[in-house]
Design a protein around this nucleic acid. Structure first.
Lengths: 216, 216
DNA sequence: ACAGCAAGCGGACCTTGGTCCGCTTCTTCT
DNA sequence: AGAAGAAGCGGACCAAGGTCCGCTTGCTGT
């Protein structure tokens, strides 16, 4: 429905364009001013967020600081959460690569249960590091998890590892349950308000994984 | 900080008042017009929510329909989520009584693991039934779980049962993990968007509980 | 080079949650 | 009954997210 994520930053603006085969209603190339504006907006937004915290940056501020109209911001990113998601894009992609293709035990090669342990620890660290953006990027309660490709990717990954670890049963549901444990607002609460350090959270995840996979 | 929940509906407005011993800065009795207004607001809000859905009722509508000023609504309930929470109060209290003092296996008397199973099934049913209100009552991501007595009550209950079931380890964290599984937005998503019936969700909870408590 | 046009732009405008503060009403004390 | 003070009230006001639509701009085909 919306332009969707983009993978921003340093987009190649000089490709000499092929005749642009648009058969079957394929998408037209993006206009250059649109690209310029998106990059400007992302730069400016990143700066403002770093300065004032994601929760204290208004869409107007971003638009003004980037020298564009408010409508442009919303056209690009759909809504506030969309802008925040775009800002997370980079970090999230790096995290994804780490468990998809990076070195073991997080990446391929290690025992599935070990990978699950590593996955939890990495996810916790990642999410706590960017909690500010994650909290600001949260969608309204009634559409959370809907159309959330990053979440789906994690789910596929975890489900695969569970199966590889020999877990039987409703793996799909088990996966959603495990991932619910890693939701940012909860991590944030346990970490900040309840004073639990990241390694305790990681140990808790590990314990849960062991119980679910039947280790120990 | 705010007047907090109240237990609304049909409040006794005719008690002849005792001299009201206010030593040590105790709270004054609530003014009668305040009580009247709260009840009016709750009635009206309940009606509007039933008619249009919790997500489609504005604070202005409620105020106007109740014949009070907007400020009054906010003074009573703090914010929109607070009003929704107040509307949930009744149902939530009944649910709490069911597992605290009701008949087994949900209430006391049964095996702790059986009670956990029953608890999950009941929570899932309860939350799906009132999902509309729960979704509208959700707090901003950065303060979720903070000062959430209902959540804390459930947590104590689950933690107690886990201990009674002989679970060792970081029970506190394990409890939070289990409860995360029952968050309304997730249940809503799995139920509505993914088409999972309530008993599948309940079975999934049961499976998770069994794994955690080391049954099967 | 230029015409045609889809894509993009911008900012006025709307909606809604939430705040503020001068005025009113209830309660209590005498 | 009346005075005094606290509690409550209401609606004007503000902030911020999101929409709309007439105008502009970059792209493409000739």
């Amino acid at each position: 429905m919306f332009p969707a994520s983009s993978d921003n930053y340093a987009r190649d603006m000089s490709t000499p364009r092929t005749p642009e085969i648009t058969l079957a209603g394929g998408p037209r190339r993006e206009r250059s001013d649109a690209v310029r504006n998106r990059n400007r907006l992302l730069d400016v937004a990143a700066r403002l967020v770093a300065e004032h915290g994601a929760g204290n940056v208004t869409m107007d501020q971003v638009a003004t600081a980037a020298g564009v109209g408010k409508g442009t911001v919303f056209r690009r990113f759909g809504d506030r959460a969309g802008l925040m998601r775009a800002l997370l894009d980079h970090a999230e992609k790096r995290f994804q690569e780490a468990f998809l293709t990076g070195p073991a035990p997080l990446g391929p090669g290690a025992d599935p249960v070990d990978r699950l342990h590593a996955f939890g620890a990495a996810a916790i660290e990642h999410r706590l590091r960017y909690r500010d953006l994650y909290l600001a990027a949260e969608q309204p309660a009634d559409q959370r998890y809907s159309n959330d490709p990053p979440h789906d990717l994690l789910a596929r990954h975890v489900a695969t590892l569970l199966v590889a670890a020999g877990v039987h049963g409703d793996v799909d549901l088990l996966t959603q349950g495990l991932l619910a444990t890693l939701e940012v607002p909860l991590l944030h609460h346990l970490s900040t308000r309840r004073g639990m350090p990241a390694d305790r959270l990681a140990a808790g995840w590990g314990d849960l994984v062991d119980r679910v996979t039947g280790e120990g």
